[in-house]
């Protein structure tokens, strides 16, 4: 499911080394990737800027500079009692609790379902019943049950994290290469040793991938829950920007949200390299 785009520079260059196609006559400089990136970013900013200053459009579209200024402002001023970092922390706090609950329930349940077919036969149908419902669709029930406080948001996040945590740990264990079981049994392992030495380590990368997905789903869920009802958090911040008709505030909130999501991905993929050093990179 996870695809990466950042590792193909040399392959691409090679496949175009002796090409004589469309782009060849434009010249080597233009074909340099970094020149193109630079051109792209500069022209994006210029187009953005001018589209924002023409006529009435600044009411809807702030210039890049305005977004930066707004970012600086909300980083220092308090909105609803908290500055930017405070709101970011509110969201992260909810994510961490919800993620912890969701994965602490989802991972063991997925493992047990993979190891015991009776448990699987009992739990899987009910899980499949609930799986197609987007986690956010629980928000109304959550508010009825827990009120508009922290609990309802944590509940949504926990549900969002629970699903991928369960699915991946379940599949991770079930899809272990059966030949590995042959190998460990030939070395004399009993059931328990087989589980410790093969089942868990072999299933671990999938399980970890599930946690990665769970965390990014959790980050989406917290925003959605905060958009529906909250008095703090990044979702609250951008919906506040909407009600205050302040597009710069919406956009600067989105910038912070995007950076956070990006950092979560980067940190987790580094953690993955550290905890699963044997995991082979996908070819190409």
């Amino acid at each position: 499911m996870k695809t990466t785009m950042g590792h193909t520079v040399s392959v691409h260059a090679a496949s175009h080394g002796n090409g004589k196609g469309t782009a060849a006559h434009i010249g080597k400089v233009v074909k340099n990737r970094y020149v193109l990136y630079f051109v792209s970013i500069v022209s994006l900013l210029v187009i953005w800027h001018f589209s924002a200053v023409i006529g009435e459009s600044s009411k809807y579209m702030p210039t890049p500079a305005m977004v930066l200024t707004e970012l600086w402002r909300i980083a220092h001023e308090n909105l609803a009692g908290k500055n930017l970092l405070g709101h970011l922390w509110s969201s992260m706090h909810r994510v961490l609790i919800g993620f912890a609950i969701g994965s602490l329930v989802g991972v063991p349940l997925g493992l047990f379902m993979a190891l015991n077919r009776y448990l699987n036969a009992l739990v899987k149908p009910i899980f499949d019943l609930f799986k197609p419902m987007p986690p956010i669709s629980w928000i109304s029930l959550a508010i009825l049950w827990f009120g508009i406080g922290e609990e309802s948001k944590v509940f949504i996040i926990a549900i969002g994290a629970f699903v991928p945590a369960l699915i991946n740990s379940y599949n991770g264990i079930r899809l272990v290469d059966p030949a590995l079981y042959d190998a460990i049994r030939m070395l004399g392992a009993n059931r328990w040793q087989t589980m410790i030495e093969v089942t868990f380590p072999a299933g671990f990368p999938a399980l970890f991938a599930g946690l990665q997905i769970a965390l990014s789903v959790a980050w989406s869920c917290v925003l959605a829950a905060e958009l529906v009802s909250a008095r703090s958090g990044m979702g609250f911040l951008i919906i506040l920007g909407m009600t205050m008709s302040n597009p710069a505030m919406i956009l600067s909130g989105m910038v912070v949200i995007a950076i956070t999501a990006y950092l979560i991905t980067v940190v987790l993929s580094n953690v993955e390299k550290w905890v699963c050093p044997w995991k082979v990179e996908l070819p190409q």
């Binding site: 590995l180 042959d182 030939m186 004399g188 030495e197 093969v198 380590p201 671990f204 699963c276 044997w278």
Partner: peptide, 20 residues
Amino acid sequence: TGPGPDRGMVFQKYTLFPWK
């Protein structure tokens, strides 16, 4: 009656434990 450590097996597809 079953697999056991008194026989050692070398597999065609290597079948090493990738995490070890």
